[in-house]
Amino acid sequence: MMAGFGPGQRVTVRNDWPETRGPCHIRTPHYLRGETGTVVRHLGDFPNPEDLAFARPAPVLPLYHVRFDLPALWHGEGRAGDEVVVEIFEHWLEPARQEAA
């Protein structure tokens, strides 16, 4: 499958809350919704767990390792430079909007 994002690209995790719309199974942690990070690499393509959890046919989607600045996730708590790296499926990612300097 063609991966839409490449290493180094800035991406924003969709600020979406399917939890509010009924039964679902989401592998994108709540603390990353709406946050911007950097693609580390494309890890491969995997069936969408959101469908597998309901035994529905599951399209195969690109999965990325995405790096986030840890203090930026938590009001600046934590040591500058520490980071969180998370597996995120492509449909949860958008190209980052222009960021303020």
């Binding site: 890890l43 995997f46 520490d82 980071e83 790296v85 998370v86 597996e87 995120i88």
Partner: peptide, 12 residues
């Protein structure tokens, strides 16, 4: 030393 936390959320 940088601390890198890897949150294992998906298929790896």
């Amino acid at each position: 030393v940088k601390l890198r936390v890897v949150d294992s959320t998906a298929d790896y």
